[in-house]
Design a protein around this nucleic acid. Structure first.
Lengths: 248, 248
DNA sequence: CAGTGGTCTAGACCACCGT
DNA sequence: CGGTGGTCTAGACCACTGT
């Protein structure tokens, strides 16, 4: 009843194949992202919302919980639901990690240095495949405003070896994998710092005293099938890895 | 009905204040962790489980979904529920990131170099506090087998300034914060690589050519209240940051 | 006390999968 | 086709909060 209570207008399409809870969650998320509901504002309670929208309480609960999981809402028993502080929003990790480092306002480009099938026992072992499995090896140079930023080495299992050089020059690796039916992945990633090798020094056009950030990543789909193994090297001057962590 | 189907024995206590879905989830998790159910094994379907345990289907669903979120189970419509490959288990992030780098089989210790209240505009700004807010500044040296591994600089807001030097010498910072009622946090963390400063070189006993990993972290509780600001520096020889990422 | 979110039930119908 | 998980409903009772 408070005058500042956020009541979000919602339009539901019961004929759509998109679940009602998801339609609702998306529209609530948009309302918070757009600033229609400000941090700290009390949110409409779930009983009122279910009556207003003609939905059952569990369905509304499910949508609200979706936003709580993303850190957009905070709920407290006996008190109500509130729009969370912006500082606790979990940024959608989508793109930020797999599209590699943020290139702030610069003109990015990618050049494919290598694209061929090879046998690489180390990459194969990381992907849980036989040592002599043929993998598609891809080496790309990532540039911003023509300046080299990163060397990206990736190995793909036979299932994804159909990706062409031309495709890689135009789109990101994960966008292409998504086209091949890779929905979600779980990746184990390791971040280390070291000095560059001679080859890396030349490709990245840096001195031997500037450290690089070395990232090794192995990704699997939910069933455990291998998706990719990556060994990326980034210039460390001015670039950092940003993460949002949760500790429960 | 398959002979390899995993049917986990479960004991529920309806008198307990612990929710039934949570009791069930914990016992299912334990069964997988213990190896009673192996990766790839079909799991009991939810209708059968709800009848066997005398629970409603939504309650069983909630427990199973809990395990799916952790990557322990995989569900496929029309097929069933299966124990996931070990490679997609999301490691409980608990401890692994806040207790800092893994110290594999070595004898770890921490020495408190500094413990005093100060005014630090940069840390205060990161925590969203006034520039002249008094913060508890803590500097610790992390050692393994007597060899220095990391310098950990932390700043705590007034709410947590009661932490003593003695407490820090015996327990981790996050264990102490938990005692002060800090349940969960959301942290923004940045990882960079650079060469050490003179002070860092001496404290870590390294040459000026060995890079360090510099981690900056700011943590807030779910309501948006600041919990800590950290600036940690790690030796890069032999130590890496391991993460489990999800991309949906 | 009234209002909130947290849990739980007993059904229903649908979409997808392999046979 | 039968079996699976995915969605949705309409209630119920409890635990916690601030007044």
């Amino acid at each position: 009843m408070s005058s500042t209570e956020a009541v979000v207008p919602v339009a539901l399409d019961r004929a759509s194949p998109i679940p009602l809870y998801f339609q609702l969650a998306e529209q609530l998320t948009a309302a918070i992202s757009d600033g229609q509901a400000q941090p700290g504002d009390p949110f409409e309670n779930e009983v009122a919302m279910s009556e207003r929208l003609g939905l059952s309480r569990p369905t509304v609960r499910r949508a609200i919980h979706h936003l709580v999981d993303q850190g957009l809402l905070v709920r407290r028993r006996g008190l109500g639901t509130f729009v969370a502080s912006r500082r606790v929003h979990r940024r959608a990790s989508k793109g930020s990690l797999y599209e590699d480092l943020a290139i702030q306002g610069r003109d990015p480009s990618t050049s494919v240095l290598r694209h061929e099938v090879e046998i690489n026992p180390r990459a194969a072992a990381s992907l849980d495949l036989d040592k002599d499995t043929e993998l598609l090896a891809v080496v790309r140079l990532r540039l911003a405003d023509g300046e080299p930023l990163a060397i990206m080495r990736n190995w793909l299992p036979p299932r994804h070896s159909g990706i062409t050089r031309e495709q890689l020059e135009q789109r990101g690796l994960y966008a292409l994998l998504r086209d091949q039916g890779v929905g979600s992945v779980v990746a184990h990633q390791s971040i280390a710092a070291r000095l560059p090798t001679v080859e890396e020094r030349e490709l990245l056009d840096i001195s031997s005293r500037l450290p690089v950030i070395a990232v090794t990543r192995t990704a699997f789909d939910p069933s455990g099938a291998p998706v990719e193994h990556a060994e990326h090297v980034y210039r460390s001057d001015g670039y950092t890895f940003d993460l949002v962590l949760e500790e429960s």
